[in-house]
Amino acid sequence: MSTIGYDSWAVDLAEVGAVYPFQGSEGIMVVLGVVFWIAWHRIQFVREGEHLEKAKHMGDKEKINSLLEKY
């Protein structure tokens, strides 16, 4: 029993196609991948919003002026 569908390389490679693990579960893998991607955007949107809200009140005039001078 092998996750890639082959227990041995005693095969004619002309007759071998996909060799990744869990062939037949591509649909589930795509769903998992898309969930990961969408979740990433959701987390990032929320965190950036919170960060910018905090950042609005963080500025010290003197430090901002010195940053402006630095260009």
Binding site: I4, Y20, E26, L32
Partner: peptide, 10 residues
């Protein structure tokens, strides 16, 4: 060498 790309990502 053997993973599916989505497996590699995860």
């Amino acid at each position: 060498d053997l993973y599916h790309p989505i497996q590699a990502m995860l």
